[in-house]
Each structure stands twice: as structure tokens, then as C-alpha cells.
Simulated assay, not measured.
Amino acid sequence: MKRVEITSDWPLPPKGIRLLSPKFLVEAMAADPLSQDLYPLATGFYPQAQNHRMSRQQSANYLLIYCTAGLGQLKAGKRQWAIKAGDIISLPEGLAHSYRADTNQPWSIYWAHYSGTLAREYSQRICAGEPFAQIGLQPRLIADFEALFTLRRTGYSTDAYIHSACQLKQMLSFIAYTAQRYQPQHGQSIDLSKIEELMHLHLGDSLNLQALADDANLSKYHFTRKFKQLTGHSPIQHFIHLKMQHACQLLDSTANSVKQVAVETGYKDAYYFSRLFKQVIGISPSEYRRSKAA
């Protein structure tokens, strides 16, 4: 069992939080099948962390930092990043690093040290090999951190800590998903939310690749490549997936015939629609309607 790394000795203010998992609970989470893949070693919140700084030659575990206000700086390897509100720091085990709050506008940060058999995979998914990502201010994530802090009132309950491990897994997967989709608009990046909004506006008709690329001010080739990097699918395939999701909603919430649902999702040929539906969903529209159950 690796030693739980003690966090910085920054003096905790009245509104600050620093919560360390006791050794016996770390061992319990590491042994339990529901939490052994990822579990918290320490979590906390440092508000307006004046003079906060930390330097490690080799981290003994994984660390996540979420800046919600102010400024800071991260150094890892030979690179450095200016940190602002909405930025994520995700540091893997073993990476030499240092970070500090800005002198004039010290950051406020939520943080979590964690470990587990899948900790490496969770960390890599967040930043794709980089120790820095941007997700913007996410009230949901702040609420999730606050939920973790309820452990202070559980009397070191094993069940509560295993539940917190499951919460942490949900938080990290949400960060990874949000970081993938968050695209600050500079250079040749694309606004995925804007593209999906355009797709949603055309669920009942058609939309070709040229129109999507034009909306992103990119060539079809570059648009398709960047879109697939973000979603794992081509733009048209993603559009079809959105259409099939809409079709499922119509099959669930209306008594419309399959032919009517096809028309409402932009397909005049009900047979072609049914083939596409089965390719994506795995069963035909009629089978889907018969098989749905509460």
C-alpha cells in the first residue's frame, strides 16, 4: 500500500477544507470491488489561497485541481501554464511538478488526490497526455466536490467512503467528457455545441457536410478530421445518431406510425429509415416500440 501523500502545509482558513482519508479506509476502498479501481486519498477546497504553493519531485499518487477563481501557475517538466478560473490541472503519478497561486489574484481551488487500479486511465482521459485542460466554470462539478465533503460528517463510515469513490469516478468522467467538448474559439478549432445546435435544428430534414463545414468556416476535409477527433464519429454519422435518438423519443412519446416517425426525422422512405435505425439501435423501430418497458 502506497503512503497517502500529505498535501501542502498551507495554513487552512476558516472556510477552507482539507479532508484526508484514514489509512484503514484507504485499505478498505482499495480492497472493495466497487471502489478499488479509483478512490480518494484526500480532497479539499482552498479559497483565495494567498501564498499557496507546492513542489514535488515525484508525486506518489494522482492529483486533480479545479480552479474556480483567481489565477495561478503550473510547471510540469519543461513546460508551464498560466491557470485561471475554469482550468483543470491533472497530474499523474510520478510526474515532477510545481504550482502556486498568483500573488495579486490568488486562486481558489477544489482538489483531490486519488489512486486505484484505473487511476492512470482516468487521468489520461481528462487531459489526453497533458497536465492541463479547460472546461470553464461548471456549477455541477462544484456541487459534486461539495458532496464529497459531506464525508466530514459520516464518522469514517466505510460505506460512505466507498460511495464517495463512486462519486469521484463520476466526477472524473464528467471532467473528461466536458474537456473534450470545451473548445475555446481561437485558430482553427470548432465549436461543437454550435454545430450540434445546427444539427438539432435540422433533425426533421437534411443537412450535408458542406453546410456543416461552411458553418465552421473550414474545408470539408479539415472539418471532418477535427470533428472526428472530438466525437469519434464523422459529422454525418453523428447527425444520423442524433436523428435516431430523436426517433426513439418519438416512438416512446407518441403513437405515430413508423412511417410518420421516419418523415419527422427527415426520411421519406420508411424502409431506408428502418434500416438506418436498426444499424444504429440494433433493432427495428417496431421491435423497439414493442420492447420498451418501465
Rank of each mutant, 00 (worst) to 15 (best):
V4C: 07
I6H: 06
K15S: 12
L20M: 14
K23Y: 07
P33F: 12
L41Q: 12
F45E: 03
H52A: 15
R56W: 08
Q58C: 09
L64N: 05
I65C: 03
Y66Q: 11
A76H: 00
G77H: 06
I83V: 14
A85L: 10
I88P: 11
G94Q: 07
L95W: 15
H97Y: 14
A112W: 08
H113I: 12
H113P: 00
S115Q: 05
S115M: 09
S123G: 02
Q124R: 13
C127I: 05
G129M: 05
I135Y: 01
I135V: 15
L137N: 09
P139R: 05
R140Y: 07
I142F: 09
D144H: 15
R152H: 10
R152G: 10
A160T: 02
A160P: 02
C166L: 12
L168K: 01
Q170P: 00
F174N: 05
A176F: 01
T178Q: 15
Q185G: 04
G187T: 02
S189K: 07
I195T: 11
H202A: 05
G204I: 03
D215K: 15
S219A: 12
F223M: 06
T224S: 15
Q229Y: 02
T231N: 05
H238F: 10
F239N: 00
L242S: 14
M244W: 02
C248R: 14
S253L: 14
A262Y: 01
K268Y: 08
A270F: 06
Y271F: 06
Q279H: 09
V280F: 10
V280D: 00
G282N: 15
S291L: 12
